[in-house]
Simulated assay, not measured.
Amino acid sequence: MGFIVFIANLCSSPSSPPSSPTHSYTDSRIDAYTTSKRIIEKVLKAPSTATFQSYDKSMISVSGDTYTVNGYVDAQNSFGAMLRSYYTVRLKGSAYNWTIESVVFDSEKIR
């Protein structure tokens, strides 16, 4: 009997959590991280070998509508050696609507 009640509760629970005031702010932070990864992949010699630092909200700073993502990526260089490279990507806007302000890869300004 308890098992049936458990299944009934699972079926009646909402499919997504209720939205909160910080929901879009969190979405923008995660999207800034995802967008920065796509930008950095274009700089890499072997993007298919890339392993990016896992998302952590502390790697993103926000000032108004400017999001600065600081992270690292492990990827092969042109000689096949795995190297860790650090990057900073500054984006302006909000989730799914970004303008790239600057890109720094291994202390070299790319854009």
Rank of each mutant, 00 (worst) to 15 (best):
G2I: 15
G2K: 15
G2M: 14
V5W: 14
F6V: 14
F6P: 02
I7A: 12
I7H: 10
N9M: 14
L10S: 09
C11P: 02
S12Q: 15
S12N: 15
S12K: 13
S12G: 13
S12R: 14
S13F: 11
S13G: 09
P14K: 13
S15P: 12
S15E: 13
S16Y: 15
P17F: 10
S19M: 12
S19V: 13
S20R: 10
P21Y: 12
T22D: 15
T22G: 10
S24W: 12
S24F: 12
Y25R: 11
T26Y: 04
T26V: 05
D27M: 07
S28M: 06
I30A: 01
D31S: 14
D31F: 11
D31T: 13
D31Q: 12
A32Y: 02
Y33P: 01
T34S: 10
T35G: 00
T35R: 07
T35I: 00
S36L: 07
S36H: 05
K37N: 10
I39K: 08
I39R: 03
I40Q: 08
E41Y: 10
K42Y: 04
K42L: 09
K42C: 06
V43C: 02
K45R: 07
A46H: 13
A46G: 01
P47M: 08
P47H: 06
P47D: 03
S48C: 07
S48R: 12
F52A: 02
F52T: 01
S54V: 03
S54A: 03
D56Q: 09
K57M: 00
K57W: 01
K57S: 05
S58D: 13
M59V: 06
S61C: 03
S63E: 07
S63A: 09
S63P: 01
G64Q: 04
G64L: 04
D65S: 06
D65F: 05
T66Y: 13
T66L: 05
T68D: 01
T68K: 11
N70H: 12
Y72N: 10
Y72K: 10
Y72L: 08
D74A: 00
Q76A: 08
Q76N: 07
N77P: 07
N77T: 07
S78N: 09
F79M: 07
F79C: 02
F79D: 01
F79R: 04
G80Q: 07
A81S: 13
S85G: 14
S85Q: 15
S85I: 04
Y86K: 03
Y87G: 08
T88W: 09
V89W: 11
L91Y: 05
L91W: 06
S94E: 11
Y96V: 01
N97I: 06
N97C: 01
N97D: 05
W98C: 00
T99Y: 00
E101G: 03
S102G: 00
S102T: 04
V104G: 06
F105D: 02
S107P: 04
S107A: 11
S107G: 08
R111N: 14
